[in-house]
Design a protein around this nucleic acid. Structure first.
Ligand SMILES: NC(=O)c1ccc[n+]([C@@H]2O[C@H](COP(=O)([O-])OP(=O)(O)OC[C@H]3O[C@@H](n4cnc5c(N)ncnc54)[C@H](O)[C@@H]3O)[C@@H](O)[C@H]2O)c1
Ligand SMILES: NC(=O)c1ccc[n+]([C@@H]2O[C@H](COP(=O)([O-])OP(=O)(O)OC[C@H]3O[C@@H](n4cnc5c(N)ncnc54)[C@H](O)[C@@H]3O)[C@@H](O)[C@H]2O)c1
Lengths: 256, 256
DNA sequence: AGGCGCTTGTGAAGACGTGCACAAATCGCG
DNA sequence: CGCGATTTGTGCACGTCTTCACAAGCGCCT
């Protein structure tokens, strides 16, 4: 993962803006907690126990408590966590108190879907620009936004204070687009193209690759099939084997 | 199916489906290697060193060698890996030798994009069915496939031997759809809806959540900002753009 | 006030993943 | 035929993540 270590200075005496140095695994789960908390808030809950929240988020409760303890958030022993307060805390840590502007590059098949997605707005982001290289797409209006040419990126980046770039172009164009984004100061990129991007230090890239997800599922499917071929024990379908085989990082049954 | 016997060394005398028990982290990287290998093959390479392949896949070379050693794949010391052979091996382990049938449930905004995505076909999968609950969508033809009603799932599952279900419905409907998929014997689900699915033991669920990815990026953005704000390095507020382009492409790409 | 039940926060142990560094294996060449 | 160049495969040490288990803290009830 990130190979940089930021030396010390974790003990800021500042009141509010003491940004803790969270484990990456924790950061990846915070959004999940946040979503669960919003659901709970909508359902009228004012407090929630680690047990309840962890169930809603699909994780182990001890893990949740440790995660929350990392960001210094306080629950109340014997009671649980204040839902509204916790939402506020997590949103602050994730930097969602400011609505970040997103530039979406590549308004094709997938780009159209993303452009019309309301999950951006409801989860703390704002699509500020739609960009494409194809002249025939430039000018098209989607969801109130007009597609502009990718060459206008420098101007747009300034206009809109773009914080995050989303790449939804074919793989062949992705590196070039990434370079353009980096050139205008974007330091966070979400890449949907199936390729590795090379970016300067300090720029974060996350990748979403549908085919990879399917192939991982395929592996487990394959393994499950090769296992059911072997065991000669009981004929029952599923043996409720306790504490047995490992649960992977994919969510498995939420039994118990 | 067809497995390659290797001369000498650890020839496992076992039967065919001796699938090694790969670390989950390795499984998650194999598809990445596979994609890189296909690129190399298309470019005419017949062999590749761990150094070369790892660079193409954006990982550490030692990690790559360890990953490959886990699946018992053989390279040749002093030479590298045979590209074609390695492709075959990885595809076998991932269970891609059979083209798995995918059922896509929820043909809305996102579903349309997925239905038109050629990355399914080119990476070992076949969209076998498009399903929706909205009668006004049923009957629509997309990419040569007709949208059918989700209630037909049981029949379709048999017809097409559905192996994987993809959920692209609103979150409110996702659990119900998951239950329906499980009921017809699907044991692998890819979920695009932002919610936790509860499924019986033995069923694998993977989730893709765009907002989570953005929020993770937001966190790092926030942290980067809070770091450049404090350190009293008299430097200008402008982050000194590295003179040229990326001199060193130390991939900071966030994995997994 | 005191006790009791509930829940948090965390120490410790172990599982897991990573990357270095090097011996072993292989090839090409003189 | 042997030697050096090259590259794999892996032992080992280290860091990260997960999970258990439990003391400490809190509120409520008597
Ligand atoms: N469609 C899906 O469901 C899906 C799913 C997962 C991943 N992906 C990936 O997302 C990417 C886009 O997929 P798609 O189906 O939307 O493809 P698409 O061809 O429909 O759209 C690509 C768009 O990018 C634009 N473009 C090309 N070069 C550009 C450049 N240099 N600058 C700006 N815009 C440029 C094109 O004009 C086009 O509008 C691909 O890499 C694909 O592999 C797609
Ligand atoms: N659009 C995006 O870019 C995007 C990105 C990430 C995640 N998502 C998520 O993907 C899901 C779908 O998003 P969308 O934008 O396509 O929404 P959408 O409303 O456009 O499409 C949802 C489709 O699901 C169908 N549906 C509803 N209930 C169903 C049921 N019980 N069985 C079968 N079909 C049913 C609807 O008829 C509709 O066609 C949502 O959960 C969304 O949060 C969307």
């Amino acid at each position: 993962m990130s190979q940089h270590r930021h030396p010390g200075a974790s003990g800021r005496a500042g009141a509010v803006p003491a940004l803790p140095d969270l484990p990456e695994a924790t950061v990846a789960r915070l959004p999940e907690y946040l979503r669960a908390l919003h659901n709970l808030a909508d359902a009228g809950h004012e407090t929630v126990s680690s047990e309840g929240l962890s169930a809603a988020a699909g994780v182990n409760s001890a893990k949740l408590r440790k995660d929350l303890s990392h960001l210094g958030s306080y629950g109340t022993r014997g009671v649980g966590y204040d839902v509204a307060l916790l939402i506020e805390q997590i949103e602050y840590v994730l930097g969602l108190t400011q609505r970040r502007a997103v530039a979406l590059v590549g308004v094709g098949n997938l780009g159209h879907a993303l452009a019309g997605y309301d999950g951006f707005a409801s989860r703390g982001f704002r699509i500020a620009a739609l960009l494409d290289a194809d002249p025939s797409r430039v000018g098209e209006e989607i969801n109130g936004l007009v597609v502009r040419h990718v060459d206008e990126l420098p101007a747009i980046a300034v206009e809109e204070s773009i914080a995050i770039g989303v790449i939804a172009t074919p793989a062949a164009a992705a590196q070039r687009v990434a370079d353009q984004l980096v050139a205008v100061g974007v330091t966070s990129i979400l890449n949907f193209a199936p390729c590795v991007l090379s970016v300067p230090e300090g720029v974060d890239v996350r990748k979403v690759d549908l085919a990879i997800e399917l192939q991982i599922l395929s592996f487990h499917e394959h393994r499950k099939a090769s296992l059911t071929a072997l065991p000669a024990t009981g004929g029952s379908a599923l043996t409720a084997l306790p504490g047995g085989l490992a649960a992977t990082d994919t969510q498995e049954a939420i039994g118990t």
